[in-house]
Design a protein around this nucleic acid. Sequence first.
DNA 1: GCAAATTAGTTATCATGGTAACAATAAAAG
DNA 2: CTTTTATTGTTACCATGATAACTAATTTGC
Lengths: 150, 150
Amino acid sequence: MFFLKELPTRETLERYHERFPGMRPDVVMEALVLMKKGSLLIRSLDEYFTRHGLSQLRYMILVVIDRQPDRDEMTVTELAANLDVSKPVMTRTLKGLIEDGFIDVSVGADDRRVKLVRLTKAARDKLAAILPGYYETIQAAMKRLEEDHA
Amino acid sequence: MFFLKELPTRETLERYHERFPGMRPDVVMEALVLMKKGSLLIRSLDEYFTRHGLSQLRYMILVVIDRQPDRDEMTVTELAANLDVSKPVMTRTLKGLIEDGFIDVSVGADDRRVKLVRLTKAARDKLAAILPGYYETIQAAMKRLEEDHA
DNA sequence: GCAAATTAGTTATCATGGTAACAATAAAAG
DNA sequence: CTTTTATTGTTACCATGATAACTAATTTGC
């Protein structure tokens, strides 16, 4: 999450440039805008997911398993790597998805350490139901960003 | 935080466009890139702050109080509003800053409900020590983004 | 073929975001 | 003035990210 309701103005950054000559106002400004816009977008999506009993990560897990071209199951480690979260977070989040009936788990046939994670029909239905609103939410948030940050 | 190590390709989004005609691939693509870039930037900065015994929010609190043109103190509510976090989070974070000797607190003279939050010399020193590396970190992260995401 | 090293996943604990409900104080309504 | 309403900041608790340390299973090296 990035905060700062009001970013520093370009003038303020120019003034800082005198104290810190290595600081490039245009690059820093761009970075601040990026962080702020990204955070606002993420916040909009989080709200949308929460309203539908999911979260960014819970949703992404379902999508990533669903979008695989060849297989219909993934391991915990694969999911963690694909979604760039730690394995303990993945374990905990999957536990919730199992409890909610979105995921089935089986033990790997040849490697009994691995857990194979697969979507239930409920998950595929959920995804289909949620996707249009997901895109709408993104597009509405992007429009707001353009208007505000213009 | 936004995840997804690999964003969907434009082609994948075009294909989704057939199933969800309301979805505009260019807008969604731009949003995904924004969230990802913003998250990576925030992550870089978080690491930098952690290495220096701070956090995004702890740092921002110090900066925001320091950057005020006319006053040298702020209330808890003002800080929470300026930094777009809830008041309980502000209370807890200030507590840590007080323990670390970065902040002094006094009770409002005319309104005894408010707490006036002021920087110590240690905080101003910390800010001066940390700012150059803060800008370097941002600029290095931006460079990485340009290279990777080119 | 067995000991050592590696890997998959979990548990325990911390950090840091949120909301709900509260006490103390101030402001508004009568 | 006194009662009601609103505001400030806190406490208690939940959600979701992280790391460290663990168990169980597999692989590697001799």
